[in-house]
Simulated scan of single mutants.
Amino acid sequence: MQCKTHNSQQNLLITEENWRSEIIDFPLEFAPSLEYFGTEHIRFAPGWGKKNAADYFSYAFLWILDQDPELSSKKLESDMETYFDGLIKVISKEELKSNIDITKSKAFFEKVNDSVYAGKILTYDPFTTRKDVNLNIIVTYRYCTLEKKHLALFNISPQAPEHQIWKKMKKIAIDLTCE
Rank of each mutant, 00 (worst) to 15 (best):
C178I: 10
V139M: 05
I138N: 09
C144G: 11
S157R: 02
V90C: 01
K75S: 14
S73I: 02
N113M: 01
K131A: 12
K104Y: 13
I64M: 06
L96C: 02
D68I: 03
I174K: 11
L76Q: 09
N99E: 08
I88E: 03
N155P: 11
K74Y: 07
T128E: 09
K111E: 13
T140L: 05
S92I: 00
N134E: 13
N113F: 08
A118G: 03
V133F: 09
I138V: 14
W63V: 00
I172V: 15
V133L: 12
L151N: 07
S73H: 03
L71K: 04
T140Q: 13
I137F: 01
E147V: 10
Q164C: 07
D175S: 15
E147T: 13
T145V: 12
I138D: 01
K104I: 02
V90H: 11
E95N: 12
L153I: 09
K106S: 12
Y83C: 02
E81V: 04
F127G: 00
K168C: 02
D68N: 15
E77L: 00
K89M: 05
I64H: 00
S78V: 02
K75M: 09
Q159I: 08
S105C: 06
E179Y: 13
Q159Y: 05
T103G: 08
L146Y: 10
W63A: 06
E81T: 06
D101R: 10
S92M: 02
K93C: 00
D85H: 02
S98F: 04
V90F: 12
T145C: 09
A107V: 08
K149T: 12
I138W: 04
A107C: 07
N155I: 13
D175P: 11
F109K: 02
I156G: 06
P158E: 00
I165H: 11
I165Y: 12
K171I: 09
K111G: 05
P126H: 03
K148S: 08
I156T: 14
K171S: 14
M80K: 05
K106W: 01
W63D: 05
P126Y: 12
E110V: 14
S72I: 00
T177E: 13
E81K: 07
I138P: 05
